[in-house]
């Protein structure tokens, strides 16, 4: 979606401000939001793409004015509500009124390290041959889906070159909404800075994205 999350190339945000000796978390509640988001994601009620979709669905002004864990908190509560795991009243009071909804699995302390160490790979067996090969010229599609997508606006309609073919991966645009993993080929696609930004903002180099096959047309 063309939401506030799609920030590449935007002006006016000022300098990047690194913090000296930055802690991993800046407040107790950030630790809890992080852990709750991880643990609730593990229940299998939704997936990572669904969480990203929920975060970027915040109203743009709210998204831009919120810290990152504040965005996570809003999205987590929205997902809990949307999937019927709890009501807004229950979340406000902190007390359970309805019976719990069934969940597929629970992240317990004893399985945390081995499960996170193993990871949650997103590659899948390919369902069709790859359409593009390294060196092929491609155009990032002009598209404006109202739902979740991982094709940033700044590359849409631009010509690039396939630099790597990664195999087939879960397609976020459908997976975010529980409409299936629909694995598609994933490529590294490189674009000249001048192709994207024009000669006045050419920094002398390239920008690469990871692009799913449905985002690309032959050049």
């Amino acid at each position: 979606m063309n939401g506030a999350q799609d920030l590449g190339g935007s002006h006016g945000f000022g300098p990047v401000l690194p913090e000296e000796n930055e802690p991993v978390f800046h407040a107790e509640w950030e630790k809890r939001v992080f852990a709750l988001a991880m643990a609730m994601g593990f229940t299998g009620t939704w997936n990572l793409d669904g969480s990203r979709a929920a975060r970027e669905s915040l109203p743009p002004a709210q998204y831009l004015a919120s810290s990152y864990y504040a965005i996570w908190l809003e999205a987590l509560e929205a997902q809990i509500r949307a999937h019927g795991l709890a009501t807004p009243e229950e979340m406000r009071s902190g007390r359970s009124v309805q019976a719990p909804a069934p969940i597929a699995r629970i992240l317990t302390a004893d399985i945390l390290e081995p499960r996170f160490r193993a990871g949650f790979p997103s590659d899948r067996p390919a369902e069709a041959p790859a359409r593009f090969a390294v060196g092929d010229g491609v155009m990032a599609k002009v598209m404006n889906p109202v739902g979740h997508t991982r094709l940033p606006r700044y590359v849409r309609g631009r010509m690039g070159t396939v630099e790597a073919v990664h195999g087939a991966f879960v397609f976020p645009d459908s997976n975010a909404y529980g409409r299936g993993e629909n694995p598609v080929w994933l490529y590294t696609v490189g674009f000249d800075a001048a192709e994207i930004w024009g000669p006045d903002a050419d920094f002398g180099g390239r920008i690469t994205i990871a692009a799913f096959e449905p985002y690309l047309d032959p050049a």
């Binding site: 991982r150 590294t188 390239r206 690469t208 994205i209 990871a210 692009a211 799913f212």
Partner: peptide, 10 residues
Amino acid sequence: IAVWDSTAET
């Protein structure tokens, strides 16, 4: 300069 935008699970 090569900028890598992490738009997928890579």
